[in-house]
């Protein structure tokens, strides 16, 4: 019996992925939520317990090596909503660490959102949705995006969408717009009850936003 217990225990230990330690080694959990059950604690960085749903692995790896600014006003958790300009930049990792971290982060998933048509939007539809992005839904008040001239425009309280097409998975974007509560208990963003067709076009529009299009 004791032998059996030891066997099971050692089996459990061995079967735990070795790379799981990478997140702990790098102390990611001190700023980021890595498990859905961690709710009470208030984190100073964005939730990562659905990284595998949210990010494109190539972007994640590049980010870890050479971090870019996603939230120009910092990750604002303060209910008084004061910009935190004193936040240190995200640590940068070596290529090996970035590979290991990306591999591990991509396993963190909480949902299986339906895939979105990967075809890029036509120029006409892009212009139409861009118009809605600015005027119908007012997204640009809080999110930076690119205008048709390739210039960065928009507010800073929400994450920048200038590089959304490289950073995010289309299926996740669509799912977030449809059911934000799956990912964020209480967002600062208004809910939009979009028609499915609008939602799909919106997602595909966001996927056209890439930093290489900045002029």
């Amino acid at each position: 019996m004791k032998l059996l217990k030891t066997l099971i225990l050692s089996g459990l230990l061995l079967s735990a992925p070795a790379s799981a330690d990478v997140l702990a080694d790098k102390n990611c959990g001190s700023c980021h939520r890595l498990k859905p059950e961690e709710i009470e604690k208030s984190f100073t960085g964005p939730d990562l317990h659905y990284s595998g749903n949210k990010f494109q692995p190539e972007w994640l790896k590049q980010y870890l090596i050479n971090p870019e600014v996603i939230r120009p006003a910092g990750f604002v958790t303060d209910p008084g909503f004061l910009p935190k300009t004193d936040l240190p930049p995200h640590a940068s990792s070596s290529i090996e660490d970035a590979n290991a971290l990306t591999k591990e982060l991509m396993t963190l998933k909480i949902s299986t959102p339906a895939p979105v048509n990967p075809e890029p939007l036509s120029k006409g539809l892009r212009a139409k949705i861009k118009y809605q992005f600015e005027r119908t839904f007012g997204c640009i008040s809080c999110h930076q995006s690119l205008n048709l001239a390739g210039k960065v425009r928009g507010g800073i309280s929400g994450p920048s969408l200038v590089n959304a097409g490289n950073r995010l998975q289309a299926a996740w974007v669509a799912d977030l717009l449809k059911t934000p509560e799956t990912y964020i208990a209480k967002s600062r963003m208004p809910s939009y009850k979009m028609e499915p067709a609008t939602l799909e076009q919106f997602t595909r529009f966001l996927m056209t936003l890439k930093k290489e299009n900045i002029k």
Binding site: K130, E134, R135, I140, N147, L148, K151, R153
Partner: peptide, 16 residues
Amino acid sequence: TACGQSEQSTSIAKPP
């Protein structure tokens, strides 16, 4: 004139 200081975003005449 839209929100995001858009000098180029004005190409559409008819709002949806």
